[in-house]
């Protein structure tokens, strides 16, 4: 069996899903006997490589940078997995949507700041007006709800995908799990 190329990326999320991923502990070793981790915030690689078999995407699409990243990732990935509630539903990051991006910036950088209140224009990527779940931006092949999905859920999902099958995620997890 050929080795599969796996990547994980991280958009607007809290990294909890990645923590849960690490919680697979020794089963990580088992999984990565059949696969290579070719890109991840957990490993030190600069460039998202081409020709990836499976990419797990944590987080919602909130900024111009997220948008740019997810389009590129989609292009280079065969099976794109929305990983965790933020990626699947928008979750907590999307709670700003009823108010708009500007209200968030006002609150964070002006109203609650006592010293030199100022909305940063550099370093921080521009916010999209609306936070969107990944599938509202690009095609998503598998959805793993959960905040975060448990290590067990991630393990079962990945095992199925590595075996070339589509996992039945509703059996394993739900929104907010």
């Amino acid at each position: 069996m050929s080795t599969k190329r796996i990547a994980t990326v991280w958009l607007d999320g809290c990294s909890g899903c990645h923590m849960s991923f690490l919680d697979m502990d020794e089963r990580l070793i088992e999984l990565f006997q059949q696969a290579d981790l070719v890109y991840s915030p957990l490993v030190d690689l600069k460039e998202f490589p081409p020709d990836v078999d499976i990419t797990l995407v944590e987080g919602a699409v909130s900024s111009e940078e997220d948008l740019h990243k997810i389009l590129m990732v989609r292009e280079r990935t065969r099976t794109l997995v929305a990983f965790g509630d933020c990626a699947v539903t928008g979750n907590v990051p999307s709670m700003r949507n009823p108010f708009g991006a500007n209200a968030v910036l006002q609150r964070a950088y002006l109203e609650n700041v006592t010293l030199y209140p100022q909305v940063p224009r550099e370093v921080i990527p521009a916010l999209c007006e609306r936070v969107r779940p990944v599938h509202e931006v690009v095609k998503v092949d598998v959805f793993i709800p959960g905040c975060p999905p448990s290590a067990e859920t991630i393990y079962l999902a990945l095992s199925e995908l590595l075996a070339g099958r589509m996992p039945d995620m509703a059996k394993l997890t739900r929104f907010g799990a």
């Binding site: 539903t89 979750n91 907590v92 907010g176």
Partner: peptide
């Protein structure tokens, strides 16, 4: 509406 299960 706004269903954010994780914080509900």
């Amino acid at each position: 509406r706004n269903h954010i299960c994780s914080v509900c």
